[in-house]
Design a protein around this nucleic acid. Sequence first.
DNA 1: GTCCGGATTACCT
DNA 2: GGTAATCCGGACT
Length: 206
Amino acid sequence: MDQDAFASLNQLLEQDVILAAKALLGWQIGWGEMRAQIVEVEAYRTPDDRACHAHRGQTKRNRVLFGPPGFAYVYFTYGHHWMLNVSAHEPGNAAAVLIRAAKPISGLDEMRVNRNGIRSDFELLSGPGKICQAFQITGAQDGMPLIGEDRLPGGESLQFFPSGHPVKAIYETVRVGIAQGKGDELPWRFIDQKEGAWASRPRPPR
DNA sequence: GTCCGGATTACCT
DNA sequence: GGTAATCCGGACT
């Protein structure tokens, strides 16, 4: 059953990053005791999206995006924060799905410690930088398999799990933090409507 | 070698 | 709601 879910997600990651991003909503991200349900993602792709890190071709930083789909692309930004992406492709073109927000399921105590003891559950994972801090994701995870069969056994590394609960309604809007003229008009931010309260800002109307 | 801006967050008002 | 903090990758000289 899980194998089917992995196979169909991998197929989407190889074919259509928009559909893959939507399909990732509801999946869980796990490491050790920590589990969370993905509620918000964004799609990035070449060649028509100037905000995609692969837009100008392969570099040392973005090389994972030019490899097989389903691997972690982790990069550092704003002098503080790590961002977690899943590598993807349109046929022949590099693409990525940014994991922007998640709803904590288990291991909240560990997340809280990693997040410097922050009190509110909402603040644990309601942003891409927060997710990486909570799960202790850094450049060390760049290039690690997340979904494929070659990922490490359960708990030993960051990995994704199918939810078994399909997302019913998806809220679509423009992506966050994109400069004007660089793809800011593309409606490639996707939020699980039902779990919109766990999304990063700006949040969808309830 | 230098410069610029960024797929953000936390904290202050 | 506004903005300082902070450092790296990529572009360009």
